[in-house]
Amino acid sequence: MGFKLLSKLLVYLTASIMAIASPLAFSVDSSGEYPTVSEIPVGEVRLYQIADGVWSHIATQSFDGAVYPSNGLIVRDGDELLLIDTAWGAKNTAALLAEIEKQIGLPVTRAVSTHFHDDRVGGVDVLRAAGVATYASPSTRRLAEVEGNEIPTHSLEGLSSSGDAVRFGPVELFYPGAAHSTDNLIVYVPSASVLYGGCAIYELSRTSAGNVADADLAEWPTSIERIQQHYPEAQFVIPGHGLPGGLDLLKHTTNVVKAHTNRSVVE
């Protein structure tokens, strides 16, 4: 069995187990497998329904001669939608809004960016022009300005110390501490036991640490421990890039980060 097929099978099995364990909360999309990078042309966006009122959005972007996937989250909030992270750029984010209108038909009224990198804030200006209120932590807003990236308009308070959590509509926002970046936030959907790890969490097929220019490698494993301790009931975990899975993604990420750190020390 090929690795790609095995990865998709694991996603399907995880979703099936969740649907059985929580039949009222989960209505997993039966329309197909989780979209992969090879299936999404740059400039297009796919939506994948995880649970009743919960979707991931998947886009792709060219970077350094390669094409990478990027995940975000959409959560229903009454007759409105909360968006977590842009679709990595203005063109993708405009396509995301169009796809949401086509498939869901509810307005996106608020959006949260989970850290300051372009795959999370690139497209904020498109959201703002569409009347979406954009939010991020003060740290993310400051770092985005320093980096020359787009800056969300509103500040999220109460997320300055490791372990801080605040309720934001249908989700809980959690600051686990520094990891992929010093400002990275985690998003949890309690009604569906869905954990969105953003770039602080890796997919299972990833074996290298990737972009760690703004990471705190020493603190990252401790931050992941905080996530595990705060959300032990999480059933569906979405990484910032690639295929979702279960809580095993947290341990896998820790292993990859520690291996990278150990290699760096040896070198």
Rank of each mutant, 00 (worst) to 15 (best):
G242E: 02
G105L: 14
D64T: 11
P190E: 05
Y12R: 13
I104S: 03
D119P: 00
A90S: 09
A179G: 07
R128L: 06
P23W: 08
I201W: 00
E157D: 15
I40E: 08
R142N: 15
I104E: 10
E233G: 09
V37N: 03
S161G: 11
D164L: 06
I20Q: 00
D125I: 08
G240P: 02
V212G: 12
V166W: 06
V166F: 09
I104A: 08
D85I: 00
G163E: 08
S16P: 10
A111R: 01
T114V: 00
G78R: 12
A51W: 10
P239I: 02
V194H: 02
G43P: 03
S181E: 00
G163P: 04
A129H: 14
T261Q: 03
S31D: 02
Q235R: 04
A15H: 04
D214Y: 14
R141L: 13
T134C: 13
T134P: 07
T261D: 11
I224M: 10
T109W: 06
A59D: 07
G89Y: 09
I224F: 05
V54Y: 04
E225P: 02
E147V: 13
Q228M: 15
L73K: 00
K8C: 08
A21C: 15
A129W: 10
N255M: 08
E172G: 11
D29L: 10
A213H: 06
N211P: 06
S7F: 15
S62F: 14
V121L: 04
D214T: 15
I186F: 09
R263Y: 02
S7M: 15
Y231P: 00
H57L: 03
A200E: 05
I20E: 12
P176Q: 01
F116L: 08
A94N: 12
V194E: 00
L159M: 07
E219P: 05
S22V: 06
A218R: 10
P23H: 13
S30F: 13
D119F: 00
D214L: 12
L9T: 09
A133C: 14
T134K: 01
L73R: 00
K4S: 13
H260W: 06
H180R: 00
A213F: 13
H117C: 04
M18A: 03
E101R: 05
G148C: 12
Y231R: 07
L250S: 05
V189C: 05
G198V: 01
Q103C: 09
